[in-house]
Amino acid sequence: MLPPGLHIPDGFLSTPISLAAWVIAIVVLALAVRFADRDLDERAVPLMGVMAAFIFAAQMMNFPVAGGTSGHMVGGALAAILLGPWAAIIVLTAVVALQALLFQDGGLVVMGANILNMGIITVLLATLIYRVCRPFALGNAAALGIAFVAAWITVEASAIATALQLAASGTSPLEVVFPAMVSVHALIGIGEGLITAAALGFVLATRPDLVPRPAAATR
């Protein structure tokens, strides 16, 4: 019996791939701990706690997509936009680690891969997209649109990373697992984009001071 909200369980990835993912995850996490204080003003620390709580809850909320399949939010893009990359990586790592340790969602040997795929790749990519799109994020609607696109892309990137790791582990051939993961997560990414935009819109409506203004930074 596997949990409904399935992260990579132990057994899906080979030992070398699991170890390689752990090494990358630990190095990036060390960088995050080193540099996070750049992002941390007085408001940021409570926001980190709230973000972790919200992403944990949102990851429990599996929404149906086509064909008897569900998906759940990852939250990397939302955290990256609101907290900056380093604090966001710490938040996502805390969520993924707690899910594995306490809720048996995601394996322990492969936890490095789950942290890498859901907590690091998503955050760094969303940060990059949001910064590149900075000149175009002139109003709230544009900012929400960019957040939607960034969220969708990060889910696909996370799915592609997982597919590559599964293939490299010899679990499933790349020509099978790659298109399968990409196509199902194209749908799940729409859910991620909608929730990300809705959550960002909620924060913009209630506490706009908490949202870093990409447009303002360029003026």
Binding site: L6, A57, N62, T69
Partner: peptide, 20 residues
Amino acid sequence: FAVSTAWLASGEPDGLERVA
């Protein structure tokens, strides 16, 4: 939100589980 998942969350297999 977390409490409401007890009623609302889909029990269908998620993306990775479906592929697996």
